[in-house]
Amino acid sequence: MLRILLLVSLSIAFAVEEDEFFFFGHEYKRTELGDAVDKASMRLLKDLYESSEDKNVITSPLGVLTLLSLYSTGTTGKIKEEIVNFLGLPDYKKMTESYKSLTEKFTEMNPEFLTMANKVYVASRYELTDEFTAVATRDYHSEVQALNFTNPSEAAKIINEWADQKTRGNIKNPVDENTFSPDTAAALFNIIFFQGHWHVPFEKADTVDKKFQLSATESVQKPTMHLVQSLFYHEDKELGARMVELPYKEPGFRMVVVLPDAMDGLPAVLDKLAQKGVLEDVFAMSPPGQDVDIDMPKFEVKSKFNLKDVLVKEGVSSIFNQQAEGIVKGQGVEVSEVFQEAFVKVDEEGATAGAFTGLVLVATSSLSEPPPPLPFKVDRPFLYAILHQDTVLFAGTYTH
């Protein structure tokens, strides 16, 4: 049996500061695809958090989902059924149309802030089927390149150069010669790179060391950013968490920070979000009628996962033990590995003294004093998600 290596999502996100912004509104629509990506993303995040020794986790579930959608186009039967069920859309046609549209939207965005790239490498001694090649290039905007996997060190060098270029030097060596075996027939790759600039400035001078609780009894000092500003906010007592939205300058992008009420409440919040997703709460956010006084640690997280066990747990197992006949001409293939390397950095790098020029209007009375700021102290393990409109691009946890 020939093997196909599915390398998922070399993904990276930055958040850096700009000196001023204008707030143009908050008009996002909730879609069927957004809901499906959301729920699959929260399940993956929970599984990775639970299976990882390091509870600082960053993942780009969209990279996983995109490549599974592409892979499914060369499959039939149980393999296709499991992928469709996991991706959470009503049927195969809806799934492929949705990911075709999503890929087109993201690959055509300004690469200064978002790069989404798919690539299929096929072993030099094989050919992809005409149908799979057409779908990969036309619908998934994927490059297709022949590669000599019998020289694994040279193959790894070529792939790493592509990853380095697409992530602007931030993910350099995701593969090595041991990644590939002599029977590797093809490899599918996805890269998502996001570099956003805060709409709301965090002044670098306001960043000081503050206490971050690792647990109820243990704490450390963390460089902590500070901001007092009108932000979208929501409380969910059933979830046991509060959340704020930090918008980016780039249209449609935002980070949502979910802060558990309890010091040790992150696992319980993850359990609940894995069942319902985060979008229900995201779309319930609104200006609270007062400024939000937020403290949030600067952080940088890098994760590398083998996703095979997680996908099997989520019901996607046939890709690893059943043949896909529609990818490589004259050959059945199965997936040998699914892995992901992701990186996120959130800070105020490049900050300059600036003015906040934003408007969020709330009803006021000339006779009343403005209410005091609402405290939002991110001083305990929390989770976060980076979205474009209603689509989760990245999701992660920060615990230490």
Rank of each mutant, 00 (worst) to 15 (best):
L5F: 07
L5E: 14
V8L: 14
L10M: 14
S11A: 14
F14H: 15
F14V: 11
F14W: 11
A15D: 06
V16G: 09
D19A: 11
F24P: 04
G25V: 09
H26G: 06
E27V: 12
Y28E: 14
D35G: 14
R43K: 15
R43L: 09
L45E: 04
L45S: 07
D47S: 15
E50F: 08
E53L: 13
D54A: 08
K55V: 08
P61Y: 02
G63P: 00
L67P: 00
T75Q: 02
I79Y: 03
K80N: 11
V84N: 08
G88M: 11
P90V: 00
D91E: 08
K93A: 13
Y99K: 08
K100E: 14
F106S: 01
F106V: 07
P111G: 02
P111E: 13
L114A: 10
L114R: 04
N118E: 06
K119L: 08
V120S: 03
Y121G: 12
V122I: 12
E127D: 14
L128P: 02
D130C: 02
F132C: 01
T133M: 10
A134M: 12
T137K: 15
Y140F: 15
E143I: 03
L147K: 02
N148S: 12
F149H: 02
P152A: 12
A156N: 06
A156L: 09
E161I: 07
W162P: 08
D164F: 10
I171Q: 02
N173I: 11
P174D: 02
T184M: 03
A187E: 04
N190Y: 05
I191T: 12
V200T: 15
V200R: 09
V200F: 05
K204F: 04
A205K: 14
V208P: 00
D209M: 05
K211A: 10
V220D: 10
T224I: 06
M225H: 05
Q229P: 00
Y233S: 01
K237C: 09
E238R: 10
L239N: 06
E245Y: 03
K249R: 11
F253W: 06
F253M: 07
M255V: 14
P267W: 03
P267L: 04
A268W: 01
V269G: 04
D271R: 10
K276E: 14
G277R: 02
G277C: 05
V278S: 13
L279E: 03
D281W: 00
V282F: 10
S286T: 12
G289E: 09
P297C: 10
P297K: 09
V301T: 09
D309N: 13
E314C: 04
G315H: 05
S317V: 10
S318V: 04
F320L: 05
Q322D: 04
G326T: 06
G330P: 00
V333K: 05
E337C: 06
F339K: 12
Q340V: 02
E341K: 15
A351C: 01
V360N: 11
V362Y: 05
V362M: 12
A363C: 13
L367A: 12
L367R: 14
P371E: 10
P371A: 14
K377D: 12
P381V: 02
P381K: 04
L383I: 06
Y384S: 05
T391W: 02
V392A: 07
F394D: 02
F394K: 02
A395S: 15
T397E: 05
T399D: 05
T399P: 03
